[in-house]
């Protein structure tokens, strides 16, 4: 367990909670038992829902992919207005600036929580390796992104990358 990882998850709690919601939602749809629905906890599962290992290949892919995708879409939607207003139009009004900073923080918190837990990523990866070639090609981008992203997120790389981008937008 990395303390940095835990801190990152707590800092970006809106995104972490939203991801947990969608993870649980996917588990419910896929009828995957949830062992622990506590999202913010001081362990390696912080920011994720603890659930039974998903053996179904496609299900394990979507279980890892869909919550991230939804949170990613939310993050991008939140990012658009601060990106344009702070990064390009350079608004100067205080009220709007505050709104934009909030939106930027929300976007940052969402985009820091788009990858699955290491556990889910490994299961997904093992299942992915057993897929047919055609499906492998179809899911390749998503699978590789999630697998690599899970490790990047584990070491808070995504958080720092997003934070740097946010600072660049503000400046």
């Amino acid at each position: 367990m990395s303390i940095l990882y835990i801190i990152t998850k707590y800092i970006t709690f809106p995104g972490a909670l939203l991801r947990c919601f969608w993870e649980q939602f996917m588990c419910k749809i896929g009828k995957v038992p949830i062992e622990n629905n506590k999202c913010l906890q001081v362990n390696e599962m912080c920011g994720h829902i603890e659930h039974e290992i998903v053996d179904n290949k496609v299900k394990s892919f979507f279980n890892a992919f869909i919550p991230g995708l939804i949170v990613f879409i939310a993050g991008i939607t939140f990012l658009i207005s601060p990106l344009i207003n702070l990064g390009y139009l350079e608004i100067s009004g205080t009220a709007l600036k505050i709104v934009m900073y909030v939106m930027l923080y929300l976007a940052l918190s969402m985009l820091t929580n788009i990858f699955p837990s290491i556990e889910d990523a490994i299961v997904m990866w093992e299942n992915y390796k057993e897929l047919k070639v055609s499906l492998k090609i179809l899911f390749s981008v998503g699978a590789v992104t999630m697998y690599v992203g899970a490790y990047l997120e584990k070491y808070s790389v995504t958080f720092f990358t997003n934070a740097i981008i946010a600072v660049l937008i503000i400046l």
């Binding site: 919601f21 649980q24 039974e52």
Partner: peptide, 13 residues
């Protein structure tokens, strides 16, 4: 476990 309820914080989020 399948009937585990949503965490209220997640619902708020």
């Amino acid at each position: 476990l399948l009937e585990t309820k949503y965490n209220w914080k997640s619902i708020v989020a």
